[in-house]
Design a protein around this nucleic acid. Structure first.
Lengths: 180, 180
DNA sequence: GAAACTATACCGTCCAGACGGTATACTAAT
DNA sequence: ATTAGTATACCGTCTGGACGGTATAGTTTC
């Protein structure tokens, strides 16, 4: 079998960061978690920085893929992009582990490594600008979504599940132009 | 002058994390930035973990202090806590560097170190629950604020300054019960 | 005289990255 | 069909440097 372990390594790195902390993102730890030798790891990612760059790109690709899938499920053209953004990171079905580990590892070396992810989010926000609804409302919805997943990332839980459901419900109805 | 260099060290650590990246949060780098000998640094913080814990506590104290100051400036009782929360991290006058560095350094070792900050935010959110306005609206406002400052922390800028001003203006009016 | 340092030396561990080697598959000449 | 060569995908060890922490002796400030 001649399959690359690249993706296995990236997923192992995500696991290491989220369970052990970003400081434990060492080449040895990742190699061990991915059940790859250190040489094998360095074959795919020649430096630690290259590994982190790959984690960021991988997270970006995952987001774009999921975003499209959620978009395709929605029929109502009004506020469609905005609802998609909201569901992207706040739906219980999706997990954001790749995104979280990308942000954590980007912070390790320097935030410049996060540029690809920033571009990704800029594009998603841009889509909500022409969404047949008030742009200010659209941005408010996106920012609430951001607040929710960022808090989840740091394991802060300022809003309980019941309130979270109410908030999302309210926002979804607003994107459809329904009154409260 | 017999003043403790504790706070200088904490602020130096913040500078190191935000300018050099969390991986450069080493005892040597902090000592150098704070213009303190390594012995002096270890006199105040006997381990690196103790330093990080102190950074988190310091950030918490700064937030609580600023929150109170902003609250005192507001006269309108309706939605006062909610508006205070919004202004806390999104006002151009405040800088959130201590908060950002606390989160970054907490992610380094493990997120458990961030518990004091979580409690802090839980308390601030709790205050908005009895704020003479719809609790769902109050939470939405807080989450938008979170989205804004988290994005700022990662140097993501999905909303430009003009839009940001519109959003904040809209939310402030909502907390006062004004219609759009 | 105690607290708050400075200055320096040192130790053990960890870690990034280099390096040389191995196994397998495919390709091209003979 | 066999041989030789090449590319890919790894393995496992080694080394030099950085880092966290200890220790110690001395200095300044209150």
């Amino acid at each position: 079998m001649r399959s690359s372990k690249r993706v296995h390594i990236l997923e192992a790195a995500t696991r290491v960061i989220l369970s052990e902390g970003a400081a434990q993102l060492t080449l040895d730890a990742v190699a061990k978690e991915a059940q790859v030798s250190k040489g094998g790891l360095l074959y795919h990612f020649s430096t630690k920085e290259a590994l982190i760059e790959a984690i960021v790109i991988y997270a970006k690709e995952q987001i774009e893929k999921q975003f499209q899938a959620i978009y395709d499920e929605d029929d109502d053209p009004r506020g469609r992009w905005t609802r998609t953004y909201l569901k992207l990171t706040c739906d219980d079905r999706t997990n954001n582990n790749e995104l979280y580990s990308a942000l954590f590892s980007g912070v390790l070396e320097n935030r410049e490594l996060l540029r690809p992810l920033e571009e990704c989010f800029l594009q998603l926000y841009a889509k909500t600008e022409n969404d047949q609804i008030d742009p200010v409302l659209a941005n408010i919805v996106c920012l609430v979504a951001d607040g929710l997943w960022y808090n989840d990332m740091f394991q802060f839980n300022p809003v309980n599940d019941e309130m979270k459901a109410k908030i999302i419900d309210r926002l979804i109805r607003l994107t459809k132009g329904e009154s409260e």
